[in-house]
Amino acid sequence: MPQAIELDRLWKFYGDYPALRDLSLNIAQGACCALLGRNGAGKTTLLRILAGLSPFQRGTVRVCGESPRSEKARRLNGFLGHGIGVYEDLSGLENLTFFARVAGIERPASASAHWLERVGLARAASMPVRQFSRGMRQRLALARAFLHAPSVLLLDEPFTALDDRAIAMLTELLTEARRRGATLVLSTHQLREALAIASHVALIENGRLCYAGERTGDMLEDPALLYRLYTKLGAA
């Protein structure tokens, strides 16, 4: 089975302090991996390394077989971090057209218009993002992340602070992405939503991988199970 993401003995240091220690993990193509762990465990650090935003000092990281900073990896990935990643002074259409253009999409303007329609922002197409409501911004962020049909989706706490409409939209987009064979890695505190769609689970504590495996029925019934079993924290 081809691996979308391969981590082999990954170490990330801030100076002499190891933020990630000896992490080895493989995520198969088409899998949906929920990255669990408390704040400061290293989830965001790991996602940023996969997105090519952060260098690492030891080990190897492969996204779609290449280094995360390679052109191919960056073209194929879609990253949704804490910020919405759009420009306040441009309109929704201008934002999406820009990202579509740099992603190399043919006819960027019409692709952007289609996506605006899809996330329910067609009427606000020429309104600057500065005037968007919070829910509108969230939906625009989703459009921006999914616009170029990424093969590897890296999502940092995507359900946090989303309203119901946006959560429904995100879930729909994630399901559709999985159907077309994309690989998903999402870090989350919202155990139920994440475990519902995840096929695999990885638990990180203090920069180390405590558990990695398939998501089982037990976990769905009792989301805090993993924390109890594998970390020193006790109940989450």
Binding site: A51, E71, G81, G83, I84, V86, Y87, V102, G104, R144
Partner: peptide, 18 residues
């Protein structure tokens, strides 16, 4: 500095733009 709000710089760096 105009790339900082909304983490646009991260979005750009992780995109296809080298």
């Amino acid at each position: 500095a105009r790339e900082l709000p909304n983490d646009c710089l991260d979005t750009l760096l992780s995109s296809a733009v080298s």
